[in-house]
Design a binder for these strands. Sequence first.
DNA 1: ATGAAAGCGCTAACAT
DNA 2: ATGTTAGCGCTTTCAT
Lengths: 363, 363
Amino acid sequence: MTIIFLLDKLDIVKRLTYVMSITIKDVANKAGVSIATVSLILSNNERISTETKRRVLKAVKELDYHPSRSARRLVANVTGNIGFILTDDHFLKTEPFYTRIFLGTEFATRENEYYVLLATVDTNFKEGDSLPQFIQERSVDGIIIAGKVPNALINNLDKYHIPIVFVDYYPPKGDYSVVMIDNIKGGMSATQHLIEYNHRNIAFVGADIMHPSISYRLYGYKQALQNAGINIREEFINTEGTYPNRQCGYSAVKKLFERNKDITAVFACNDAMAIGVMQYCVDNGIKIPDDISLIGFDDVEADLLLNPSLTTIRVPKVEMGIEAMNLIVSVIKNKLCQSTKKIVVPVELIVRKSTMRIENIEL
Amino acid sequence: MTIIFLLDKLDIVKRLTYVMSITIKDVANKAGVSIATVSLILSNNERISTETKRRVLKAVKELDYHPSRSARRLVANVTGNIGFILTDDHFLKTEPFYTRIFLGTEFATRENEYYVLLATVDTNFKEGDSLPQFIQERSVDGIIIAGKVPNALINNLDKYHIPIVFVDYYPPKGDYSVVMIDNIKGGMSATQHLIEYNHRNIAFVGADIMHPSISYRLYGYKQALQNAGINIREEFINTEGTYPNRQCGYSAVKKLFERNKDITAVFACNDAMAIGVMQYCVDNGIKIPDDISLIGFDDVEADLLLNPSLTTIRVPKVEMGIEAMNLIVSVIKNKLCQSTKKIVVPVELIVRKSTMRIENIEL
DNA sequence: ATGAAAGCGCTAACAT
DNA sequence: ATGTTAGCGCTTTCAT
């Protein structure tokens, strides 16, 4: 009696002070059962009587008990963490693209028992460079890699045999589970939209053609032209730059416009490059959409005061993060079945003010 | 002999496959000591002989042993995590300000034993809303709060008695440890720079005057004017908006310019608002710096193709993150000594092309 | 200077 | 249906 009273007293103290944490013992004491019973009930029911379960869950609630992660992980021999790796320039870039994907992984953790650890790596990661600390310490059960990363990083990572899922990129070699944008479809939709608006001389502004996303967008562009019976003119395509950002969009469209006077529309392989195109047009007195129609890709929704607002292909960024998280979890769970899985997320044409229907010149 | 041989064999297998993790036992076996000795050595020397230490550290290295975090945390009754909380709009905003601060905390973890867990909260967090999961589960030993967050969040958080450090913001009530920018000094430097360039009619573009950073920048502005013997003209100050972003900068400067024709320079309370000011000038044929000198604050280094480049006050964002991390760690360590600590990080004037010396009109 | 052993909170056999 | 108990990897007395 006295003992029970004291224990109850202790619970109250613990709860009020929040200084000592409530353990499974406290719950067991309060509910008058063994810790095994509590554990059984918490690891989602067994053959435990409804009445006991009720009492235990009541105690859990009243004590605001949360199992110790450290203890659970120790027993299960897991870390309970997922590593999220991307290059620093991707994390710090102006458009919140990868930050949204990261946020998606965060959201998805609410449904499973993982925490997400973020680490950036240098864009110029070399073979000998040190890996993120959580890799060295083997503190993650799986890794999500977002966006293009150096091959040297992937090679180093592979040695650890930690499950990896790629988002919005996959390396040239190897067979990995990935979450990808439907880039071909997006490239086609963008181009078809311009074709529907009667444009025939459509330029493609890209960069880094080795990037699978960009090459697929270009492929979609070509496909759409072919389907419409329009000749592909290589002089309308510029993919010279190495990194698809604003500066690069600016200089790419500069070259295209200086060499070709008959372009009426531009498909930029992402919004960043499209903004570069816009900037060039502003600087050169070219009116969008009156003189040139412009479509981007990504829908980065940047707080940009963009004028005119940019027609683009929307990419579900947060959803990609969620998918990546779910995928890495399933890869970890079914570790034996080594078959890799590809998830393709759909895109959507968002028509705003930067594209305009022109008169059909082919009458 | 056979046993030792087998154990050695096992080590090799473990290392090669990376599938079973190396434990303290493996190290102890390899070095021919007890696990207690290994532990002692790893928890930074005791009275262990140099020779034994050498052997053990050699084994640690050869096996690439990393102590299990879960086990360590379980024993120490700590979580080993720091929570990083900010509002979603801060995390997703165009300028990589808070992402840099976050990155700073990441960098700082390399020197201490913590991992950082990030969570965003809704900008309109209300009293009843649920807190980040790692708070509910008490999986963090401390919290870093970056940027302005709703008071309701802080109130809810306080109940958990988890140490908190604020960065770039602190709540109106309460006494917390904080890492702040030297906003007054920055506001003064910015204004002094314009005064040195012979500007006398200097406008202040701000918002959300309840934000301590902004009110201090304004205070610095006024201080500099007073020091120079220039009258403070309230009609040159606009702080009407609620959130200091581009749109708000645009509309604030619009009002200022429409009502005052004699303004020759603008001090925007941050770069985002300064960019809004730039946009307004472009749209209205006002040349920067010829017609108007413009200075911002933050130095967000956005990939913006800003033309002209923006004179601003540089804020050491990554360093602030590092400071915040070190501060929260010291708060956790010295939990008994409850004195709060304020760290003020210095700022620096960065002169670029958006400010210009004008003729001294007061001759 | 080093080892034996208890115990952190939990899970999962194995008992009952 | 519920309890007993071993042990996950580590730290930390307490012995020796």
